[in-house]
Design a protein around this nucleic acid. Structure first.
Length: 826
DNA sequence: TGATCCCGCCAACGT
DNA sequence: ACGTTGGCGGGATCA
């Protein structure tokens, strides 16, 4: 130790003497060179990488670069030896060159994003470590994070299997779900609120307070989330109870997936992660350590291009944060069992179908146990037990995934409510994002919407006000695709981002939805009264995000400003409105919700909501890249997640509609037409937007999305009060569900009647964004809309009632005074 | 400075 | 007993 350290310390000096930190002799070099020179190249590589938009680069490119660079570096090395002195120093592997991120890049370069099942994608840690010329310890860091994403799985000692990104979307879905169940959104808001309240002191009583508040909801300890097919194989092998890095990684990802602007600051993440296990001792050292770990994880995730570093600037200063740049996570479509619907269709993806249930079970298995073990606070334990009990009660027997796990579920009611806004945010946000993302969201949102709907319903209670959340939910429903421009059936468009294609059938009614779907919409409360759903949601909205790419600009201006004026007032009202919920209604809702919840799980697993748009699996890509897809590309067409869906009816996926195209920026209704046009066009159809209603109806009915009698209007766009909700009813078998849905629908309708979507939406922001995203890379194109509501960003509207007794957020409190945040990329 | 985070000690585990 | 994993945090670098 000492020696090494000293070496490190006196590096500069020593280094000069001994270039590689190794013995003076040259020997080491040769080896290094051959394999893949780890360090030297890195600096150059890094430079290059940073220079180029990181996201874009393909792995191959990286490889090339690395190789080239390595060679170059080697050359350098030689030179260095001769040089000695300053120059030499310069060339020395700087710390950066040894960074975990770089190492991870190298690591990833060794394996294809979408490996074919056939090839043996085994990873031998020793070999890798050797080849990359790093201590094994470092490899563990990488592998652990990859494992958390199910990109690799441990087979045995020293041996891992490489899965690449095939499971990524599923994993993300699962994580998102878990995150939602854990109320991460709320937690985040709470933390922010706290921060705001106590500007500075970080530790201290406040923490306790926080912890306490959290405590109830916290379920925190979830264990590792597994996927169906991905269970840890040799149990014996992975007995390590502590999978903290893995678990941390998953939680960290969850935070992104759950927050609306998908930006998470390290500080918040650390607090939440700490909070989960030990609220009590939130001491600095612990916090610091957590942060360190988060950096490790963040580096790997960055290498995977799932996140990128940004800075959030508040009054206090700049805080490091990361922004999700990964794929939008669909609501668990798979979970929902598209299969069900798609009977006709080709078999669903292998895993998705069979394993879903399994997944769930694994998600949060024995958290109590584990937690207990680790951080045995009796209190906590008790709480968790209670929670579990509740879960059990509420939760259906079906071992459904995640939901069961979470304690929060218990409190589901409130929590979900809270979540609603969150979701909305996401969706909204999505708009700004790349088109691809948008499309993803659409599909996702649809699902979510369905799920949420019950909750949504309850919100409307307040007299005129439509809860923003509700609105959002309604509106969001993404998807609508005008798809059809003509007739037809679902088209499948090539997905930009992930390469996934979906056929989306939209309910005409939903069409309008699409339009709506924009963040802007959130801000504006359409409705009847003062609703605004957004604000709270947007806590972050406050922030500005600045990206090199120019996000900043966008963020600064757009949506926010325009909305602001209107919004602010609205926001307040919203809050109040929430508070005002009538109990009776609330109760009803509660019941409804509860019921819903109970069913929900079962549904989740089995079912399917096809809210506005549903996806039908077309084909599945096997793990291999068969289909001729390019594979490596980010696009990763084949990934499981990206299942392709075909129309039930025709079964021919002749057309592809990319969700993206469909989605567009729904910002304003007014815009909608435009969107549709442009988007559609892009997709290739020049035809008018009117889908043939008959076809749609037929399709929907056929699929079971809508009752036989129901007809969907042909022209979705601009229709305010379509039948919309119906689709939700869909094929689900559960009775309860149907009942609930009906209620929901009613509510929705009421809501709509109130004036709902129409007017205000139209007001919304014009859509500027291109419907079709081009390159995935250009995130910037997408405007990120952050809303800065004067009032407060973080307010969570939903929280008025705490059924569980916890309190997490009281309505009033949540409201966070505005702070300005800026996000900037480095 | 504060943000990053490399490095490697050493404990927990497995075999 | 020894090898593998990986938590952890000192302290070096970077910005």
């Amino acid at each position: 130790k000492t020696p090494l350290k000293q070496a490190a310390t006196s590096q500069s000096v020593l280094i000069e003497l001994q270039p590689d930190c190794q013995p003076l002799t040259t020997p080491p070099k040769p080896k290094e060179i051959l394999p893949a020179d780890p360090w030297t190249p890195t600096s150059n590589l890094k430079m290059l990488i940073s220079a180029a938009s990181p996201e874009i680069r393909s792995r191959e490119q990286r490889r090339e670069l690395s190789n080239n660079t390595s060679e170059v570096l080697q050359a350098k090395h030689c030179l260095q030896e001769h040089l000695s002195g300053d120059e030499y120093e310069k060339s020395q592997p700087s710390r950066k060159e040894k960074s975990l991120g770089l190492l991870c890049h190298k690591f990833l370069a060794r394996y294809p994003d979408y490996p074919s099942t056939a090839e043996n994608n085994y990873i031998c840690l020793d070999e890798v470590a050797e080849e990359l010329n790093v201590e094994r310890r470092r490899i563990y860091d990488i592998v652990n994070v990859l494992e958390s994403l199910h990109m690799v799985s441990r087979l045995a000692k020293n041996r891992y299997a490489w899965h690449g990104r095939h499971n990524l979307s599923k994993t993300l879905q699962a994580l998102k779900k878990v995150g939602e169940e854990n109320k991460y959104t709320q937690q985040i808001q709470m933390i922010k609120k706290r921060e705001y309240e106590h500007e500075f002191d970080f530790d201290g009583e406040r923490n306790e307070e926080m912890a306490r508040s959290f405590g109830s909801n916290e379920h925190s300890e979830m264990s590792f989330v597994e996927l169906p097919g991905m269970e840890f194989r040799a149990a014996s092998v992975n007995s390590r109870k502590d999978k903290s890095l893995r678990v941390m990684s998953q939680k960290f990802v969850m935070l992104f997936l759950v927050s609306t602007p998908q930006i998470v600051s390290l500080e918040v993440a650390a607090k939440i992660l700490i909070g989960e296990d030990q609220l009590e001792d939130l001491d600095k050292s612990k916090f610091k350590t957590k942060i360190r770990r988060l950096y490790d994880i963040a580096n790997v995730l960055s290498s995977l291009e799932l996140i990128k570093k940004v800075h959030v600037t508040e009054e206090r200063g700049r805080k490091p944060a990361f922004k999700w740049t990964g794929p939008e996570v669909l609501p668990s479509i798979q979970d929902t069992k598209l299969e069900t619907t798609s009977t006709t269709c080709p078999p669903p993806v292998s895993d998705s179908i069979s394993s879903k249930e399994q997944c769930s079970k694994n998600l949060f298995p024995s958290r109590a146990k584990q937690n207990f073990t680790r951080h045995p606070s009796l209190i906590k334990l008790v709480k968790s037990i209670e929670n579990d009990r509740r879960k059990i009660q509420s939760a259906p027997t079906s071992p459904v995934k995640i939901s069961a796990i979470t304690d929060q579920n218990l409190s589901a009611f409130p929590s979900k409510m809270a979540q609603v806004p969150t979701i909305t945010k996401h969706q909204l946000e999505g708009q700004s994002k790349k088109a691809k993302e948008m499309k993803m969201k659409l599909s996702r949102s649809a699902l979510e919407r369905n799920l949420l709907s019950p909750e949504v319903v309850r919100k409307p209670e307040p007299p005129c006000t439509a809860a923003p959340s509700q609105l959002s939910a309604l509106t969001q429903p993404r998807a609508v695709c005008p798809p059809s421009h003509s007739s037809v059936p679902p088209a499948i468009l090539p997905h930009t981002h992930s390469g996934v294609s979906y056929a989306i059938y939209l309910h005409p009614s939903q069409a309008h939805t699409v339009t709506t779907y924009s963040p802007s919409f959130m801000l504006q409360p359409l409705p009847c009264a003062n609703v605004t759903g957004i604000k709270s949601i947007n806590s972050k909205a406050l922030n500005k995000i600045t990206t090199e790419e120019g996000d900043s600009q966008i963020a600064t201006d757009d949506p926010t400003k325009s909305l602001t004026a209107k919004e602010r007032p609205t926001i307040k009202s919203k809050t109040s409105s929430q508070r005002c919920l009538k109990r009776s209604q609330a109760l009803q809702e509660n019941n409804l919700i509860k019921r819903y919840r109970s069913d929900e799980e079962s549904l989740d697993t089995s079912l399917t909501f096809f809210p506005s748009g549903y996806l039908i699996p077309l084909t599945q890509c096997t793990h291999g890249n068969k289909a001729g897809f390019s594979d490596k590309e980010k696009a990763g067409i084949c990934s499981l997640q990206h299942t392709t869906y075909s129309s039930p009816i025709a079964g021919n996926p002749a057309f592809h509609i990319t969700p993206l195209n469909i989605m567009l920026s729904p910002t304003s209704i007014a815009a909608a037409p435009v969107l549709s046009t442009s988007c559609l066009n892009s997709s290739n159809t020049s035809s008018a937007q009117n889908p043939s209603s008959s076809v749609l109806n037929f399709t929907l009915q056929h699929v079971g999305l809508i009752p036989a009698g129901v007809q969907v209007p042909a022209n979705p766009v601009l229709q305010h009060v379509p039948v919309s909700s119906q689709p939700e009813n869909v094929s689900h078998s559960s009775e309860n569900l149907n009942l609930q849905e009906e209620k929901v629908n009613k509510n929705i309708l009421q809501f709509l009647d109130c004036g709902g979507l129409s007017g205000k939406y139209s007001t919304a922001i014009p859509l500027q964004q291109p419907c079709v995203p081009k390159e995935p890379q250009e995130p910037q194109t997408v405007t990120e809309h952050f809303f800065r509501t004067p009032g407060g960003p973080n307010t969570v509207p939903s929280l008025s009632a705490n059924s569980d007794g916890t309190n997490r957020i009281s309505p009033g409190t949540l409201y966070i005074p505005q702070r300005k945040l800026e996000v900037s990329e480095d």
